[in-house]
Design a protein around this nucleic acid. Structure first.
Lengths: 189, 189
DNA sequence: GTCTATAGGCTGATAGAC
DNA sequence: GTCTATCAGCCTATAGAC
């Protein structure tokens, strides 16, 4: 089938979000798609090629979701709540962010992989900075938007990791609560 | 030598903080200590035994540092600044938190490893909750201390991971800035 | 405690047929 | 695009001598 390439990236993405790139072998990936490992090498000659496709696919999907949040409009609080919805959806089925997982495996990634990974994080950060800045007048704090954005990026990546260890979503919930309070002036005294 | 066990855990810890447990082999570990891999198995029969020793050693060292911060006393701001000093010291030499790294490799850990890992995070969270609660009167926010603690734990773990991808410490610096502003009322209008 | 030696398995990757 | 077959290398772990 012509769309085996798509099947490969879809299944690989899910596996990497659970057990990392090192935890995924060409053989098991091939088995799950129903082809042989040599056929996987036809689509992705080296593991770095597969990793690159995964980072790009994941980044595109993520960017599309953020764009749709921006397009829907509304208050900053509403946008950040929908942002957290996107993050919490990742936590389903023992998964963490694909790029958070790969960040932990940084030492085994190619230079190209690293660059794409870096771009994923800066794109998320830039989106947050833009949205916070756009609503700056309503802000409940004097902290610089780009500083808040950095803390939020770190926060969601860490919360996904730590939440999974605890087997619940409390750290994600705390993230939502604290940033709602920090950024939403309506709840303040 | 009788302290080869200590050499093993020290070198293993440093390696795991850089490349994870899956990235560490008994052979390379043995080479770096100057013994053979079968001798490593004498000290740690299975990899899970080594992992357990690493988590416990790391947790003990970390707890000692937090205790010393508490003992030194001072304002909440001062304690949190020293807490961030401890975290930033980890970021040296391309390392992330040992337990953050193992959290990414959760699926390959034994039940005992997972429990110890969980305890590391709750211990850090409990320390933060205790310190924030003790200074509650000075707090610049109405957010629950345990919620703030959860966000800080997630935040530092994520910041270590993301900082390494970018090759700088900006995300750790942002963490310091934002929490200083959030918790330290003296800087507020 | 450390060694030699090895079993048994998994891995990424390639050659060449169809 | 997919296959069979295979290589060379790495891995965890164990047996048994010293």
């Amino acid at each position: 089938m012509a769309d085996n390439r798509q099947k490969l990236t879809d299944i690989a993405q899910s596996n990497v979000q659970k057990s990392g790139l090192k935890g995924l072998s060409f053989r098991t990936l091939a088995d799950e798609v129903g082809i042989k490992s040599s056929s996987v090498h036809y689509h992705f000659p080296e593991k770095a090629d597969l990793a690159q496709a995964l980072i790009e696919q994941y980044s595109d999907t993520f960017a599309t979701r953020l764009d749709s949040i921006s397009a829907a409009g509304g208050s900053l609080m509403r946008k950040l709540s929908r942002f957290m919805d996107v993050i919490e959806a990742v936590a389903a089925s023992d998964s963490v962010c694909l790029c958070g997982m790969l960040a932990a495996e940084l030492e085994s990634l190619s230079p190209e992989n690293r660059q794409a990974l870096q771009r994923f994080f800066t794109d998320m950060e830039d989106w947050l900075t833009r949205e916070i800045t756009a609503h700056r007048a309503d802000l409940g704090t004097a902290i610089e938007p780009h500083q808040l954005a950095k803390v939020m990026v770190s926060g969601v990546e860490g919360a996904l990791l730590v939440s999974r260890v605890h087997g619940n979503t409390e750290h994600l919930a705390a993230q939502r609560t604290v940033f709602a309070d920090l950024l939403g002036p309506e709840d303040r005294a």
